[in-house]
Design a protein around this nucleic acid. Structure first.
Lengths: 157, 157
DNA sequence: ACTTAGTTGTTCGAATTTGAAAGACCTAGT
DNA sequence: ACTAGGTCTTTCAAATTCGAACAACTAAGT
């Protein structure tokens, strides 16, 4: 049926494998995380990013960029995490438009508790399937892809 | 802050790059597709899968597996596409529990119209950033990952 | 100071996605 | 034939996500 080429079979196969498997990977990690903790993948990601930030806090906008979340999605999501006590929200000191999300004690505990399980899951479904050269290669390739995507997005504004 | 290791820096970097960039990739492709057509990425994917299937039809369950959609999500999504005339739904001849989604003329047209734009987008944001060896490598790696994930899922049932 | 344009984060209604039933049907063993 | 135990898809309500519009503020030029 489909005579829609413009991509070679090799290119198409690689493209599809990446899309499909990364989707499966996310789904599996999400499931594992929910089974061993009270956190979603997004929750976990928020906690990690905050824990790594100076003073364990990030501007909403910055957090949204890192998570690749729309602004409204982040507002909502941080709201749910705030209700659960995992993060707090504070007005930004030097810019009165902004606010920042701050990691709480409870949030840090939740992260510390979930991390071993989550990392085990990452290992099982990702790292263990790859050798060192492949890991290095993936890092190179996806870092490059990410940079190009960020550049492209900046372009089209 | 985070002393949560258990993954080496190399492993962690690769993992993060893959997750983040594949997310960015999806988002960009989705945006491009919406700009040049009336289709979402999921719509497009449905149309491709149907167009490739024998007699341009697939059981709902099979389609859900290929798309990595939950059953209820697929029901809803096919519903919206049906309203737009892109697909039709028919009872399954040999299994009265089931139904199948069928590609319509309009669906095929929509796919043919969207494909060049979409493929150009895939090329720009993915293929063009990679050389042949990398593409082959990605195909190998992600095919393997996908197989493992399917196996793991079958396990845990 | 005074516009004017751009940012930042939130809000709101609509669209989508989830997960737990439920309904209808198939399959195997009796 | 007749269950008992699956399977396939849909339904429903609740949770999430999107996108446009908004309010508050900042930045830059005049």
């Amino acid at each position: 049926m489909s005579d829609v080429r413009s991509l070679t079979p090799t290119e198409m196969a690689a493209w599809r494998a990446v899309i499909e498997s990364s989707q499966r990977l996310l789904t599996q990690l999400e499931d594992d995380l929910r089974e061993t903790s009270e956190l979603s993948f997004a929750d976990y990601h928020v906690l990690v990013l905050l824990s790594e930030a100076p003073r364990q806090r990030l501007r909403m906008g910055e957090l949204a960029n890192k998570l690749i979340f729309s602004p409204s999605r982040l507002t909502y999501h941080v709201g749910t995490m705030e209700k659960r006590g995992l993060v707090a929200r504070q007005p930004c000191p030097d810019d009165r438009r902004g606010s920042e999300a701050v990691l709480t004690e409870a949030g840090l505990s939740a992260l510390r508790e979930a991390a071993p399980h989550h990392l085990r899951s990452v290992r099982r479904h990702f790292v263990d399937a790859l050798d060192d050269a492949e890991l290095a290669e993936l890092n190179t390739i996806f870092t490059r892809l990410g940079e190009r995507l960020i550049a492209a997005r900046a372009q089209s504004r």
